[in-house]
Design a protein around this nucleic acid. Sequence first.
DNA 1: TATGATAGAGAACGATCGTTCTCGACGCTA
DNA 2: TAGCGTCGAGAACGATCGTTCTCTATCATA
Lengths: 188, 188
Amino acid sequence: MTVDKAEATTRLLDAAEAEFYERGIQAVGMDAIRARSGVSLKRLYQCFPAKEQLVEAYLLRRDERWLRSLADHVRTHATTPADAPLAVFDWLAEWFAEPGFRGCAFINSFGELGSTSPGVAAVARAHKEQLRAYLRDLVTALDVADPDALTGQLFTLVEGATVIAAMSGDPGAAHTARAAAATLLAHA
Amino acid sequence: MTVDKAEATTRLLDAAEAEFYERGIQAVGMDAIRARSGVSLKRLYQCFPAKEQLVEAYLLRRDERWLRSLADHVRTHATTPADAPLAVFDWLAEWFAEPGFRGCAFINSFGELGSTSPGVAAVARAHKEQLRAYLRDLVTALDVADPDALTGQLFTLVEGATVIAAMSGDPGAAHTARAAAATLLAHA
DNA sequence: TATGATAGAGAACGATCGTTCTCGACGCTA
DNA sequence: TAGCGTCGAGAACGATCGTTCTCTATCATA
């Protein structure tokens, strides 16, 4: 065999992520995944017995990587706990400016399939809950009156900036949200 | 004929709005529109020569009605110009609590078809620009140092609250965003 | 009443897509 | 070297869907 199963799985997930994120899930056929990955159709179905499972695996891997990338940036760029929440928006600015940025994969997937595929809806919801929990951790290190309320406000700014950057194409949405976050942090 | 063309068009748009908003666009076949509207397939294609045109007409009508509903609420509930931006979030709270609420139709459509259908992408973008312009009008009536910046921040909160309410199912996202907006307004 | 245009119901067509099957080639083992 | 199992390439199958076509019934008009 040319490639073993682990290698095939990785290549399939790479292809799935590129195609699904760029074009949406229903617009991408399994044959496009095969072509992009170079993995045969037979092998594809050995690794993922159905498209739905490939979609969920793609979302799960992206969830993990996305949050890890964010946390890494915050850990290495924030000098004080008070800086950490603002570093989140700096990371957003970089993300929004990446070529091929097309918004949040989970928001897009949820909008497309949330009411049709319970699996996709669950993974998307779980991703957002993990993001909220991460923000909550950053806020916990601060001395604020109502940490849950502040967390919710920061979370709202992150989601709003992502949607606006995706639809308007303007990465400056991160800067706008960062300024709002700074004001909220200063008066929390 | 049972119904004239105007009546058929209205019924088709009603059916399209209900089906597309609830289930997404690609998941809804033209036959579902026919069944829900009671308009024959032949007539359907006389009113809308292709699905894409029905989709765009649905989004255009929803854009107009959505913004009008918001503006009506703000006009009748805000007592002072300073209250107006907060009234936006009160309206959001009511919208989020409606049965069948499934987020913003334009965010969902953009996520599903934004990279595939230029027409859908354009209508969705135009909707968001109209919302931003409306918020800008509300902010213009205030005496703030940087009205464009405040507009952007309020816009971010509106979009973020909508996404969070849709995915978490918690209408309380409107309250969280309202509190953030109040803080930003107080310190603008 | 005869005629012709238009309506609706639903079959039909062609394309796409998820999934499975066939077939010939290759590599490992006795 | 002979035979067995597995592989990749791609055809095939069945379902769905957008769109068009057929057929029959109905209604306005002369």
